[in-house]
Design a protein around this nucleic acid. Structure first.
Lengths: 140, 140
DNA sequence: TATTGTTATACTCTATAACTATA
DNA sequence: TATAGTTATAGAGTATAACAATA
């Protein structure tokens, strides 16, 4: 039987290490990984409020304000006030943001992709199942 | 067959999410997760140089200098100059550091442990195998 | 009064570049 | 001259508290 406390420690360490390693690989167009992650939501979902975007990314509103400001400065998204409720800010992707995402999807996670290419089919399947589990855990 | 580029994207997202979620759970004695991680190495390995500790944790020397300073302030480790080579700083765990680690190991990763308790044996086995793979990937 | 978002502030984590001390 | 570590500086990523605007 598996010792869950032991596994928790190993999992935390493993995730910590990979996060550090991934940060060393530069995403395209000088966007950070967090910015890419938020932009991907706008790309997928279309126009949505700042609050919904914060919820989707599981960050606090001030953190999302920062990310949106950075993405706006980079010309990736536009902020507009919702006419139906002037408290809300609608965030939508620009042409440039769309093309950046399309390029990014094509070259996605290049470093990680290269590393994965060395793994066996079994190992890839394990990681695939693990991804779903990690996202589930993070959503608690 | 698995699309490794697709999987790379999912894996990056999953790891990102879990890192953020874990950061919300407070480690004991006001130590951060990174500090606990470094302290665990000193606890396991015994006295070692700052450089070896940086290598073990896969961070740059200045980052380790910071971590060691924080751990020293918290009374968890001691820094001493190596008499055999006065350039080197030896880092060793204090009584307080040892007892903190022992408590931590006992309560380790409580939140994560609780979440894991809800998973099936199959799912735990998947995560166990995934841990080894993630650490291997991070080590490239 | 409640909700949405922003600003102000602060802390962790990490890096590169430049420096000091020792070998 | 080379190595070990530190200091100075900077930037990403995030949070809480206080605030303004709108409902």
């Amino acid at each position: 039987m598996t010792d869950t406390a032991e596994l928790a420690g190993e999992l935390r360490l493993a995730v910590h290490r990979l996060t550090r390693r991934l940060r060393q690989e530069n995403p395209p167009d000088d966007l950070t990984l967090s910015q890419i992650s938020a932009l991907a939501v706008v790309f997928r979902e279309g126009s949505l409020t700042a609050g919904d975007l914060a919820a989707a990314e599981q960050v606090r509103p001030p953190s999302m304000t920062r990310m949106i400001a950075a993405l706006e400065t980079a010309g990736m998204v536009e902020r507009t006030t919702n006419p139906a409720d002037a408290r809300q800010v609608m965030v939508s992707i620009t042409e440039r943001g769309r093309s950046t995402m399309e390029t990014y999807i094509r070259l996605r996670e290049q470093w990680l992709t290269e590393q994965l290419a060395d793994l066996s089919g079994d190992e890839l399947a394990t990681l695939q199942r693990a991804c779903d589990l990690l996202v589930r855990l993070a959503g608690r």
